[in-house]
Design a protein around this nucleic acid. Structure first.
Lengths: 210, 210
DNA sequence: GAGCTTGTGTAACATTTGTTACATAAGGGT
DNA sequence: ACCCTTATGTAACAAATGTTACACAAGCTC
């Protein structure tokens, strides 16, 4: 595991902290679609994302879902950070959007490292900062944008994190992520295609002007 | 200032930290409607709210507004916390919803106290936690609820923080907070009144079943 | 190729929300 | 009392989004 650590977090953390992480952390490799965390589950460890993309979802009481944001390499889940202060249950669902590699660190170390390592404190604060900004962006999106704009943004975001202009997905899945119906998505996608912004195929969407 | 501090933060912070806050902090008292912070403004100090209610707003490029949440006594603004790590410009607007008293602490102390005081670390993490939860609730509200539900929730929230079942406001102001039009609010309010959930007056709304 | 499942296209309609326009009321100032 | 500003009520219509229903196509299995 030490190589993965050095490679992706070496520039962030002190030698000593890297050593500690290496000692108590466990390496985890998950396939696409793997559910890393679900709403109401107890959080026992926090993930440091080494590679891959994780999508973070919110669900209401009726089972309606909404995509909050994507996590990429170097990110950690801020909701997990809360474990050591407030509720220990997850408020969100985390699904591997691509195959992913993670280092899982026991949450008990959080506070100890906060005291000992300047770089860890910074990392945690940075993470909170990043997550709050992403939440703000999510709010902007759902509060101020109409569905066609949200859809196009979603496609671009997805193409971005996957690093591929061709997205492999179904209209149904997009509808879930954006919390609307499949018919609405099909309709809007067709419009976007007519406008020359995307090209539609079965199980695939090519985003033209990224 | 020391009495205010003792009274509202005494149970939270160590004696020594209280002393430091008292030394470097400045006391601030603002009237209702006072704009404490605006989007794009530079953040030089973080507020510890002693009394009153602050409303936190988001605005998009077109000047459309949306109420994010209310801050109450004992809260601080998590967006301010970011100042010492990321951007130094505010992402949000903060308006005094009631007359309010605050202690303003220079942001430079943040990191120093994070190192020195266990209670400060906890306070900061707790604040982030609370803010993230509030952001999630805001997202739930705008993503999953229809306007009539949002409106009723808003009225109840407002009655709650103001500690008064009679809300003094205009339809126009509510429309701004919920990012919709005055006509829509008037319409829905009238429906709520017919359902016996509220009583309407000029410049006032009485919430029946809190 | 027949039969199945899954994904997509589209029409017709319902509901929700937003917009425009105007009437009227409430209260303040003179 | 009269004028003015601000707040509210309501109708009529427009636009966006959600729902239901169904046709058909693509790919898979047998």
């Amino acid at each position: 595991m030490i190589e993965e650590l050095e490679q992706h977090y070496g520039y962030l953390f002190e030698e000593e902290l890297l050593h500690e992480i290496n000692q108590v952390g466990t390496f985890k490799e998950v396939p696409e679609g793997y559910r890393l965390m679900d709403i109401g589950e107890y959080i026992k460890s926090m993930p440091l994302l080494v590679s891959g993309v994780i999508k973070i979802l919110r669900e209401d009481d009726n089972g309606d879902e909404l995509l909050l944001y994507f996590l990429e390499r170097g990110d950690t889940c801020a909701m997990t950070l809360n474990c050591c202060v407030g509720t220990k249950k997850s408020e969100i669902r985390a699904i591997a959007e691509t195959p992913a590699k993670l280092i899982m660190v026991p949450v008990q170390k959080m506070e100890e490292w906060m005291r000992k390592y300047h770089s860890w404190r910074n990392f945690i604060l940075q993470s909170y900062h990043a997550r709050l900004k992403e939440m703000l962006e999510t709010i902007d999106t759902i509060a101020f944008m109409k569905m066609d704009e949200r859809l196009l943004k979603h496609l671009r975001d997805k193409a971005m994190v996957k690093n591929d202009e061709v997205i492999t997905t179904t209209h149904q899945e997009i509808a879930h992520d954006l919390h609307t119906s499949r018919v609405v998505i099909s309709r809007l996608l067709k419009t976007l295609e007519n406008e020359g912004k995307i090209e539609l195929g079965r199980n695939s969407i090519k985003v033209i002007d990224l």
